[in-house]
Design a binder for these strands. Structure first.
Lengths: 346, 346
DNA sequence: GTACCATACTTAACCGGTCAACCGACGACG
DNA sequence: CGTCGTCGGTTGACCGGTTAAGTATGGTAC
């Protein structure tokens, strides 16, 4: 019944102008709270607009304002990994809350590769679809940085800062949390610690790996890093391999909560009990790391706040108000049941 | 350095027209593959457009075409639950793949309540921001249905069908999977089965609960349903309560994978072993239900395909090509390690 | 009484496309 | 030879806002 027919004409300022007996221009001034109309007229116009349920046509406004009032976010990870990686949804929630407060829209797209991603940036910018973008999963020597800078598309890199500062970044210190986690494990008596990291090309992975190596060396521990693609398959395999080596680690730091939960599953399957025989530290502290048993010790970050900060920074960049970086709160260790003192084997 | 300055003017058809020595109109015809220009001229124009890196300004096109080339999706769940509920990300991935194939954008927003949601629909439609929307988490007697129908905003309800059919729906049979799961458990010897469901107001919850009661009754089993808000806290509490009752169930069906994993954690914590003392069935089969130990028996749906189907349907509705419902593949049971034969207590 | 200035509007151009209507030239046909 | 049709364009209106520039009216200052 509703059908296409009901696509009634939506009111325009011309309709309002006609009903109020004034010109289009007057209506525009009135509805934008700009001087040029009397209080009486303004009230009358506003009342009519209200009654008609008028909203400004974004396309029309964008056309003259040369503003899309939208920002973009592209994700270049496989959908099923993405789906289960709580980081992104939580990050998006933060982004969204900040954007919608400014009534800026968020456009999201999933892409296959970095090249596709650049192509979409090019198109979005060319089409005036977005005013700016957030760039996630920064890689070492990331081609997106130069492409965006060349394009002139306002962007904020999440997780930089980028050397050379071709783009502004919203970042936080990864090293301190690694440091905190390793020192904590050391105090518990662990001497062989492994790190199961994410994609080695990602800048934050690189950073964590570097920090891990540094603190392990400083404390005179044995530390090993194995990288994965964040997939549970790889995560399970490398964990199995670590645990079945001749001198297995007594503690493992995982680079994501999904990897950590996977590791816990592998341990259980192999009859390695947590935390008695193996301590586990998870990176990022979503609900999944809390609902398993034992609940996982994790590096906790306020991801939503991270999204908010990055977005706020992006909006400033779009306005041309800044070109610098912004540092956000670093992660901190939240000890839970998955870590415990080293039990010396008999 | 890049800054605002680099926001170089993006090419328009007027630029192309000038360079090609033809009129704006000719350029428009040429670039849209419409008759009215010679092959030579067309080639020349296309080459120039290519060289300038021209893309049609979406706002300008939307203004005359009265098309936004965007669809919307609003999510009214708490961010941290959403983050960890793989359903949505996977669904979005499906939606996205279909939309971007048609180069239609996806706009996403998180809202607090159904009322807010309706307000955003109103605004989006008024602003010509979207051509249509997908409505998820349908409630019984959902106010959004009437609101959208009244608005005339093309929409597809995910999870209907709606009684009275005020809106077209993309749905699938929930009952058959419930039926399959319960019968499977019955064959394994389980006689006391519990269902830990999601939000009772959701239509699909209602449907599953109904189906559960029906099959339990038919098979002469004892079946109990307790509802939650999908949060792990509630899930943990009700599971704890179920397991500590005087006659605890020997099998539990959870309405989401997060709930199921939570239930597994509770069982472990209480020393109830899975599947020896308790069988667990999860609804929706994301990676988290597979990485825990034991891996969870789950009702598997191809959620991405669900997203694709819903989106395809929405695009047809937007075109005015259909007003009917579309049924999508139903879920099927994938047995894994979390279910087993009932072990009679001594 | 005139000059000057706000105030409260109107007018019209403009943003970048789309598209119906018009127009000139050339070829074919009766 | 006149006319009609088609091809290959051009012209200009239009989508719905914004905004610079112009105008009428009334008040104030000197």
């Amino acid at each position: 019944m509703a059908e296409r027919a009901n696509t009634a004409r939506r009111a325009t300022i011309s309709d309002i102008a006609r009903l109020a007996g004034v010109s289009k221009g007057a209506v525009s001034y009135a509805l934008n709270g700009r001087p040029g109309v009397s209080a009486d007229t303004r009230d009358r116009i506003v009342a009519i607009a209200e009654e008609l349920g008028w909203y400004p046509n974004r396309a029309a406004r964008a056309l003259s304002a040369a503003r899309a009032d939208a920002c973009g976010l592209l994700l270049a990870r496989p959908a099923n990994t993405l789906a289960v990686e709580p980081f992104f949804m939580e990050f998006i929630a933060g982004v969204e809350s900040e954007l919608s407060a400014q009534s800026v829209a968020l456009m999201i797209q999933l892409v296959e590769s970095v090249d596709d991603e650049i192509a979409v940036y090019r198109r979005w910018w060319g089409e005036h679809r977005v005013d700016g973008v957030l760039v996630v999963d920064l890689r070492v020597g990331d081609p997106r940085v130069d492409a965006l800078a060349a394009l002139g598309l306002p962007a904020v890199v999440v997780g930089g800062p980028v050397a050379g500062a071709a783009l502004p970044a919203a970042w936080h210190d990864e090293a301190s949390a690694v440091d905190e986690a390793v020192r904590y494990l050391a105090v518990l008596g662990h001497e062989r610690i492994a790190q199961v990291s994410g994609v080695a090309e990602f800048a934050h992975t690189r950073e964590r790996t570097r920090a891990f190596a540094a603190v392990v060396e400083e404390l005179g521990l044995s530390g090993e890093t194995v990288s994965t693609d964040y997939s549970p398959e790889r995560g399970a395999r490398v964990t199995r391999k670590l645990l079945s080596s001749s001198s297995p680690p007594s503690a493992i730091i995982f680079d994501s909560d999904l990897l950590a939960v996977t590791g816990l599953g592998v341990a259980r399957q192999m009859g390695v009990s947590v935390p008695e025989d193996l301590s586990i530290v998870s990176w990022d502290d979503s609900l999944i790391s809390q609902v398993v048993h034992p609940p996982l010790t994790a590096v906790t970050r306020d991801i939503q706040a991270y999204g908010v900060a990055a977005t706020r920074h992006l909006l400033a960049v779009v306005e041309g108000k800044t070109t610098g970086d912004v540092e956000t709160p670093r992660g901190e260790l939240t000890p839970r049941g998955s870590t415990g003192p080293l039990r010396r084997r008999a």
